[in-house]
């Protein structure tokens, strides 16, 4: 999927994450801030990158401010931000299509 415009999903509340995606400058540029960076930083990064890959996003600036979200939450927030950024969130959302 191609990131057409900036979009955001999630919140800054505990156990959630705020994900912002913007058109990239060639490649994925991930900026991650997390309240559990020392414990789970690597896993959060892997989950976000994997979700982007499944959505076929190869060119994006992604900002994640994580407040201890579980993997399923992270996936949902990344997915939603990407769908919003390419106008796929209004109708016929490809549930389970690109993201398994």
């Amino acid at each position: 999927m191609e990131i057409l415009k900036a979009a955001m999903a999630g919140t800054l509340e505990s156990s959630d994450a705020l994900v912002t995606v913007e058109p990239g400058e060639g490649g994925i540029e991930l900026n991650l801030q997390s309240s559990v960076m020392n414990q789970y930083g690597r896993q959060i990064k892997a989950t976000v990158l994997e979700t982007l890959q499944r959505l076929d996003v190869a060119d994006a600036k992604v900002t994640v401010v994580d407040k201890g979200a579980l993997d399923c939450t992270l996936k949902a927030r990344v997915e939603c931000a990407v769908f919003r950024s390419c106008g796929k969130s209004e109708a016929n959302i490809p549930w389970g299509g690109a993201v398994r």
């Binding site: 900036a6 979009a7 919140t11 800054l12 705020l18």
Partner: peptide
Amino acid sequence: LNQVLSHLLERQAERGLF
């Protein structure tokens, strides 16, 4: 504060401000 800020960020995003 997290709730207030989340709400404001969402509203700014709706206005196209990132």
